[in-house]
Design a protein around this nucleic acid. Structure first.
Lengths: 131, 131
DNA sequence: ATTGGTGCAAAGACTTTGCAGTATT
DNA sequence: AATACTGCAAAGTCTTTGCACCAAT
């Protein structure tokens, strides 16, 4: 069988995602990874994101019209999209109580939920990053 | 100044969105509108969606990686994405209590929130549409 | 030494734009 | 009659794929 090899590119991309404050878009991953690997190609980023997704190590999150990626295994969490700087943060508190199996008015059986909060991140509240 | 004209295409597209069970993707709009206007072109759909958005009559919603559009003025609501048939429904009940201005742990000031529920719609629960 | 991985460039998919004919005002 | 709107096709943008060279095993 084909074994997935360990390469510098994959390590860096995985680390970039792991160290991020929240899910990153392809462009973010590319930019941050190029700090260590200036010659990194876009195709490699797409291929690696696909591979990591298939391996279940990361997964896509859609937010504000773009697909972002975050490491799996973070447990139940949600996202905060800052209207000031545009960054997306991971939040570990959940504002809803909807156990899987809950039946919503109308007969909708809920299996999972996703919450996105919009507002100002701490830095933007203090005017450090607003723009 | 340039006045936006009333055309059959625009009327049909606006009606399709208005009559929908939830936000529609470009392809859905095109398919449904073509029932009345077989010759409708994709470009017109894109242009009309953009126009209606600028007029504030509709607005985009991103869900599962695709952009969908829904009429504005529906009041506070959320969405239910059916894992069976893939359709997205509008829900008028809100499972969270997060008034604008709430400060989330970490110092995040919440201005708005979005909730997406995933599960089985009534039809899919009854096996009528599952696939 | 093998063979999977990478970067580049070409190919796809989706969205926007240019243009000439059409329809609304 | 004037001019905004439409459909088609070309042009963009983003993502995927093909290929020759490179690197991990």
């Amino acid at each position: 069988m084909s074994a997935a090899r360990s390469t510098r590119q994959r390590d860096v991309i995985a680390r970039v995602l792991h160290d991020a404050e929240g899910p990153l878009a392809v462009g973010d991953v590319l930019a941050r990874a190029r700090t260590d690997l200036p010659a990194l190609g876009v195709a490699t980023v797409y291929r690696t994101l696909k591979l990591l997704t298939e391996q279940g190590r990361i997964h896509p999150v859609t937010l504000d019209g773009e697909t972002r990626y975050e490491p799996s295994g973070k447990g139940h969490h949600h996202h905060f999209s800052c209207t000031g700087c545009g960054r997306v943060f991971t939040l570990h508190t959940c504002p809803v109580a909807l156990p899987s199996g809950t039946v919503y008015p109308g007969g909708f059986v809920v299996e999972a939920h996703e919450v996105t909060l919009y507002g100002r991140c701490p830095e933007c509240v203090q005017g450090q990053r607003a723009g």
